[in-house]
Computed example of a mutant assay.
Amino acid sequence: MSHVYDDPRPFGGRVRRQTVAAAACVVLGLGLIGGAVTGSWLVGDSADAGQRGAFATAAGLWHNVPVDQLFPRTVTGRGAGPGGADRTWTRIAVAPDSGCADAFDPLLGKALAPAGCERLLRATYTDATQSHVTTVGLLFTEADAAGMRSLETRFKNEDLYRRTDLMPRPYAPRGTVAAGFGTAQRASWTVSVLTDAPVVVYAVSGWADGRAVDDPQPATDATRSGATTAPAQAGLGHEAKGLADRVERGLRKSVVAASEQPS
C-alpha cells in the first residue's frame, strides 16, 4: 500500500479514493458472501428434496417392487458368520403381506405403534445346513422422517433394541423346516429403525429342530467375541444380524434404482 502515500494529490483526495475503493470492496464482498449463501441454500434445498424423494420412494416399495427383490430366494453373506465365515441363506417361504395386528408381542407392538403400520412383509430363511431358521421382516410405517427419527431415538435412548420382551415374532410356515419355529424357540434377534426410510428392519433366529431357548440374546451381544451363551456359540446372532443387514442393503439398492427411473 506504499503507492497510496506517494500520491501527490491532497490528502483529502486520497481519503475519498480510499473510501470509494473500500466501499466497492464492501459491496463486492457482500455480493460474494450473498452469492455463497444463496448457493448453499440452493444446494441444501436440492439435497433436502432428494432425501424427501428417496424417503417417499421407499414408502412405496412394498407394492412397487417384486418380492424376490426385497426377499431374494438366496442371500449370500460373505464374512457374515462367526470368525468371518461365509453364509448362504435359502428362502423357505414368504408370508402374505399384512397389517400389524397380532404380528408382534404386545410390548413391541406398543413401542412401534407411534410410527403406525402401513404394511408388514416377512420371509423365513434357513442356512445351508438347514440347522437354523431366521425370519426377517420389513415393517413399512406411516411415519414421516421426523417420526422415524423420534422412534429411532427412543429405541436407542431406552435401549429397546436389547430387551428380551421386545423380540420380534417368527413366521413359521407349515410343512417346512421352520414349522416348529415359535415364540419359545427365539434365540437371537435384531431390530433396526431406519431414519432415511419409513421402514423398520428386523430378524429373529432359532434352531430348526424346534428346541426351546431359555436365554435368548440380542444379536449385538451374541456376535461379540467371547460370548458364551448357546445362541452365541451356535452363531445364531450372526444369522439374525447377517440376514437383516443384507435385506436392508437390498432395500436401499431398490430405493436408489426406483429413484433413478425416469418419471
Rank of each mutant, 00 (worst) to 15 (best):
S188D: 03
R169Q: 10
T57C: 09
S192F: 13
A146N: 12
A219H: 03
A54H: 07
D105Q: 12
R52D: 14
A197W: 00
W41K: 08
I33G: 12
A258E: 10
T134G: 01
S2D: 12
A56M: 09
V15P: 05
H238N: 12
A103F: 04
E142S: 11
R224T: 14
F11Q: 07
A24H: 08
L243R: 01
G13P: 01
S46F: 13
D209S: 07
L194D: 04
V94P: 00
L32K: 13
R87P: 00
R78V: 10
N157D: 14
G235E: 01
A179P: 02
A197P: 02
T124Q: 00
E152D: 14
G116S: 10
G226L: 09
G99F: 04
L61I: 05
G180P: 03
H132E: 07
R17G: 14
N64Q: 13
S46H: 15
G180C: 08
D215I: 03
T134V: 15
P216D: 06
W189C: 02
R122F: 05
R16Y: 10
L166M: 15
D144H: 10
V200N: 00
I33P: 06
F140G: 03
V191D: 00
T74H: 11
S40N: 11
P66Q: 09
A23E: 08
A49W: 05
E118L: 11
A93P: 02
L42Y: 09
